[in-house]
């Protein structure tokens, strides 16, 4: 095993430096994202007026005023009201809760599925089962989430229409059978990603010196996997869980919109699509910011874990 133990003083120095560095990166990233999101979301206002009619010439002044107004409102906790007269910050609470519920359930389903799939993918050596598993995995990773959702909805709707048997709902929010389809779509996507990531990690671990030594000493099969590969898979497992979460949040935007789940994705895309009105753009920008914050947190956690791993095993 090529691991060397880092001296305590050096290790402390490394850890504190990593924390300081990461804090700086996070603060700067947060500030830049706060600026970038409204800069992107308000772009349509350069070319269109409040009724959605194209302007004769691009109006950058209005754009600057709106972005400044949004940032000022964000600082003071007042983002105005929506078209329906609801305070923007309040309008975000329910969709955020809906999105979190869907994400939580999907994650809980995807995690064991991904781990099991990854373990099987890496362990199966027989040609046809391996090829089949690999093909399924590549398909799950390649199929856009909206394709899976669209085909599932079409199939379920046709089945209900022809047989009058309603297996599940094909759109809408609810913590009952409504959860089945969007959870299945998101979990499939997440588990596919995780399985591939774990397979790659397992292949890399299998090439390490200590595995070769263990093999040379006569270990093999499940014993080798249990005693040497599995402990080393701990960090890749956490890292791939975070990656899976990212993939699922990216998919959530479209799934949410398409399934009428009433989450942040739907809110952002609907208000974004006809979000020429400034207040609607405020809603889109705020929904996008929540998603961006989520991504920043997962990224920071991922980086910290990677740094920790490299600091421990050199």
């Amino acid at each position: 095993m090529r691991a060397s133990i880092t001296p305590i003083s050096q290790s402390r120095g490394t850890v504190s430096r990593v924390i300081v560095d990461e804090t700086l990166v996070v603060v700067v990233t947060l500030l830049l994202c706060l600026l970038l999101v409204p800069l992107v979301v308000f772009v349509p206002r350069i070319f269109f007026d409040t009724r959605g009619e194209p302007l004769v010439a691009p109006n950058f002044r209005i754009y600057a005023v709106l972005v400044r107004g949004y940032l000022w409102g964000l600082l003071h906790g007042d983002l105005g009201t929506t078209r329906r007269g609801m305070v923007v910050t309040r309008a975000l609470v329910l969709p955020a809760r809906h999105s979190l519920q869907l994400l939580g359930v999907s994650f809980a389903v995807a995690l064991p599925l991904g781990v099991g799939w990854g373990a099987v993918l890496a362990q199966v050596r027989r040609r046809f089962p391996a090829l089949l598993l690999f093909g399924l995995n590549t398909l799950a990773n390649s199929l856009p989430s909206f394709v899976v959702l669209l085909l599932t909805i079409e199939a379920l709707a046709t089945l209900t229409l022809r047989t009058h048997i309603r297996l599940t709902y094909v759109q809408g929010y609810g913590l009952d059978r409504h959860l089945l389809v969007p959870t299945a779509v998101l979990a499939l996507q997440g588990a596919g990603y995780m399985a591939r990531a774990l397979q790659v990690a397992q292949e890399e671990i299998s090439r390490q010196d200590w595995i070769t030594v263990a093999r040379a000493k006569g270990l093999g099969g499940l014993t080798l996997w249990w005693h040497h590969i599995l402990p080393a898979l701990r960090w890749p497992l956490i890292a791939s869980s975070l990656g899976m979460l990212r993939i699922m949040v990216s998919g959530l935007v479209i799934v949410d919109y398409m399934y009428n789940w009433g989450g942040l994705g739907q809110l952002m895309l609907e208000t974004g699509n006809n979000g020429i009105r400034p207040t609607e753009s405020n809603v889109s920008a705020s929904a996008a910011l929540i998603i961006v914050l989520f991504f920043i947190i997962t990224d920071v956690l991922g980086r910290l874990l990677t740094e920790h791993r490299t600091a421990r095993i050199q």
Binding site: V26, T29, C33, L36, P44, V253, I254, V292
Partner: peptide, 16 residues
């Protein structure tokens, strides 16, 4: 990288 990867590609592309 942190900033650009934090904003989903779909969001950037859609609004532009």
């Amino acid at each position: 990288l942190s900033v650009w990867s934090a904003v989903p590609s779909l969001v950037i592309a859609l609004f532009l």
